[in-house]
Design a protein around this nucleic acid. Structure first.
Lengths: 228, 228
DNA sequence: GTAACAAATGACCTGAAGTCATCAAATAGG
DNA sequence: CCTATTTGATGACTTCAGGTCATTTGTTAC
């Protein structure tokens, strides 16, 4: 029954079109200010049709966010495939995350909502599962790489790979959020350049987590520090 | 004119009563799910009266959040007044923040909204100013203490006091958010105990930031590590 | 005792999320 | 090819919550 398959494809295609329209509006206005009527208009569909494909505004928001997570996952997986030394790949992963933050800021901002427990109560279980899967794909790339580093005695083993990953991720992410929303405020009131803080914090944590061997290899492979 | 003063006091008192009612509802339901009608009922006032005292739901939310910030600021300032060695006070400040997180979780959760740029667009400039002031009181306590540490050669001076404070704060805060919202998830899917991660991350960062002299004093003053 | 002012009220307005009876199009069957 | 049935799309409508304002109630001043 080729018709069933075609219909399935068309349905997927329609869903993607709706996501694209929603993305445009959400990027422009954010979750709150965006309206389903606007999204429907951007998708050139009626509001009722949107609700045929997505259960709620929040579900649709997450569908857009998942796109962002997939992009990030692909960036991370790409750095892992490059066949370079572990220490270089770790460093490049960090750079990739920063690059994501800068080139895909709109997606990056959406991640914040996924971390808000209040938000999750408004989302369908199905969409939640999809998000978690997508999220795990990102974490998997990070944790596996760090595990390699531990196995090769480049990263200290006092913390597990997952623990190390969480600390690195959390620190970077929260500083990026801050850069995104408060850069000017910190510059003006405290004279602090949050961009520098991010670089310094990365270096500090990186060095605190590397073994002697790791530090050695790092300095060999990266005579020019990243931050300049 | 004693009447003017009494009226002023009564107005302030009324405002506090409204905040208390709002707090109850916001704590129970969160920003989104709480309604102004509920808050009005809890305050035993009509909805119109609430709007006489606060411009919007978001303003009222921030008014409650400021209470939380004042509590935290007082906790921080109290540790600074104790007349103990700097290194002890730094350690106690970290403990105070964790204690705030655990005993005032509802307030802690509200802080998240203050960091959301989307949220700020819905808030009156006046309330925003109040928040920033309150927020700065907290930062002031942290930064001044770290500056003392730098001056006494206990904390490395490669980072400024403000920079050090931001890194410590951001890392702790983001891990606490994660504990609050995803503790079970990490335990179940990765076998990671986020509580331990927080302790380990604090120790790691602390040690990365202390000078040799600082580490020495720390081990002298705190033979029993905090985390056990 | 009453005029002027301030505080409080709740019916009302507005806008947006979400629904559903109705309509249109595609498919299947004769 | 034409009709019956199922699937997809629609937008007027319902509901609900934030915010407003004409009116009422209470307080102060003279």
């Amino acid at each position: 029954m080729g018709i069933q398959e075609r219909k399935g494809r068309e349905k997927e295609h329609r869903k993607e079109e709706i996501i694209s329209a929603a993305q445009k509006i959400f990027f422009e206005k954010g979750l709150q200010a965006a309206t389903m009527d606007e999204i429907a208009e951007a998708a050139e569909l009626s509001k009722g049709t949107i609700y045929l494909y997505y259960k709620s505004k929040e579900d649709l928001y997450l569908a857009v966010m998942i796109r962002g997570m997939e992009i990030l996952a692909e960036m991370f997986e790409a750095t892992n495939k490059a066949g370079e030394p572990v220490i270089t790949r770790i460093s490049k992963l960090g750079q990739a995350y920063q690059q994501f933050f800068r080139s895909q800021t709109n997606y990056f901002r959406m991640f914040r909502f996924f971390e808000n427990p209040q938000f999750h109560t408004q989302v369908s279980p199905d969409m939640n599962t999809l998000c978690i899967q997508s999220n795990q794909r990102v974490w998997k790339a990070v944790i596996e790489l760090i595990q390699e580093g531990i196995d090769q005695d480049l990263i200290k083993s006092e913390l597990s790979a997952a623990e190390t990953a969480i600390i690195l991720w959390s620190t970077s992410t929260s500083l990026m959020y801050r850069i995104d929303s408060q850069y000017e405020h910190w510059k003006a009131t405290m004279g602090v350049d949050l961009e520098e803080v991010l670089q310094k914090s990365n270096r500090l944590l990186f060095e605190a987590m590397l073994t002697t061997k790791g530090i050695e290899q790092n300095s060999l492979l990266q005579p020019e520090p990243i931050e300049n």
